[in-house]
Simulated scan of single mutants.
Amino acid sequence: MAVIALGPPLLWLLCAGGAPSLSYRELKDLKKANVLHIDVRERWEIDKFGKIPASINIPLGELVEALQMDPTEFKEQYNQKMPAKSDPVVFSCLAGTRSKQALGFATSLGFSRVQQYAGGFEDWVKHEPPEKK
């Protein structure tokens, strides 16, 4: 039997592969329970198209650094309490590609209760209008 060494990219793909993906309704219910919802789209996308209400924007390129910040710095930068590794966190993007990557990053950093809303912003706006900045 061959043993294959998994580098980080393959590892996060495998971690995210079986990851639970939320439906619109599940995300709506989770938001009532105060889950931290991180939208990993770029800032210009939020500015141009709006956002899912009660989500915070941390572009994918900043996510790994953000999830390792000092809690005070995180609060200052994102106006939100830093999530603990055991807190429920949901990632979304436009249509699921970047949120899947975010899920892998967070899992590799030790976050244990992370999920993605794979339908993302595209799916959300089919159900209700976005929040404008």
Score class of each variant (00 low, 15 high):
Gly110Trp: 11
Gly96Tyr: 09
Lys51Ser: 10
Asp39Val: 03
Gly50Ser: 04
Glu73Gln: 14
Pro9Asn: 02
Gln80Lys: 14
Lys126Trp: 05
Ala95Phe: 01
Ile46Glu: 10
Leu63Val: 07
Gly119Arg: 04
Val64Thr: 09
Thr97Gly: 13
Val35Thr: 10
Glu131Ser: 10
Ala95Tyr: 01
Ser99Asp: 02
Ala19Ser: 06
Ile4Cys: 08
Val40Leu: 04
Phe91Ser: 07
Leu63Gly: 02
Cys93Pro: 07
Leu27Ile: 09
Gly18His: 07
His127Met: 05
Met1Asp: 07
Gly119Gln: 04
Lys132Trp: 00
Ser21Arg: 11
Glu76Leu: 10
Leu67Gly: 14
Trp12Lys: 12
Ala84Gly: 14
Gln77Asp: 03
Ile4Glu: 15
Gln101His: 09
Gly120Phe: 03
Glu26Asp: 13
Arg25Leu: 12
Phe111Thr: 08
Gly119Cys: 02
Ser21Asp: 10
Arg43Glu: 13
Val35Cys: 02
Phe91Gly: 04
Ala118Glu: 08
Phe91Lys: 10
Leu22Ile: 00
Ile46Leu: 12
Arg25Phe: 12
Cys15Trp: 13
Glu45Asn: 09
Leu63Phe: 10
Gly110Phe: 04
Arg43Trp: 13
Arg41Phe: 01
Ile46Trp: 14
Leu63Glu: 06
Leu14His: 14
Phe74Lys: 12
Gly96Cys: 06
Trp124Ala: 00
Ala2Gly: 15
Gly18Tyr: 05
Gly96Ile: 02
Trp44Val: 06
Ser99Pro: 05
His37Val: 13
Leu10Pro: 11
Pro71Ile: 05
Gly17Leu: 07
Lys100Phe: 01
Gly120Lys: 03
Asp123Phe: 03
Glu62Asp: 07
Lys100Arg: 09
Leu103Thr: 15
Ser55Gln: 01
Lys100Gln: 12
Ala118Gln: 09
Asp39Cys: 10
Gln77Pro: 09
Pro71Cys: 05
Met1Lys: 11
Glu45Met: 07
Lys28Arg: 15
Ile38Cys: 09
Ile52Trp: 02
Trp44Tyr: 11
Ile58Tyr: 09
Glu26Pro: 11
Ala5Asn: 15
Pro83Ile: 04
Arg113Ser: 11
Ile58Asn: 00
Leu109Trp: 03
Thr72Arg: 14
Ala66Pro: 14
Lys75Phe: 14
Gly7Leu: 14
Ala102Phe: 11
Glu26Arg: 12
Ser99Ala: 05
Asp70Phe: 02
Phe105Tyr: 11
Glu73Ala: 14
Ser108Gly: 13
Met69Ile: 08
Val90Asn: 00
Asn34Lys: 05
Leu11Arg: 13
Val114Gln: 01
Lys48Gln: 09
Ile58His: 02
Ala19Asn: 09
Leu11Trp: 15
Gln68Tyr: 00
Val35Leu: 08
Glu62Arg: 06
Glu73Pro: 12
Ala2Gln: 15
Pro59Thr: 03
Gln101Leu: 08
Gln116Lys: 06
Glu131Asn: 02
Ser112Leu: 02
Glu128Val: 08
Ile46Thr: 13
Phe121Trp: 06
Ala5Thr: 14
Asp87Tyr: 01
Ala19Phe: 01
Phe91Met: 00
Arg43Phe: 15
Pro129Trp: 00
Leu10Cys: 14
Lys132Asp: 04
Pro9Arg: 05
Pro53Lys: 03
Ser23Phe: 06
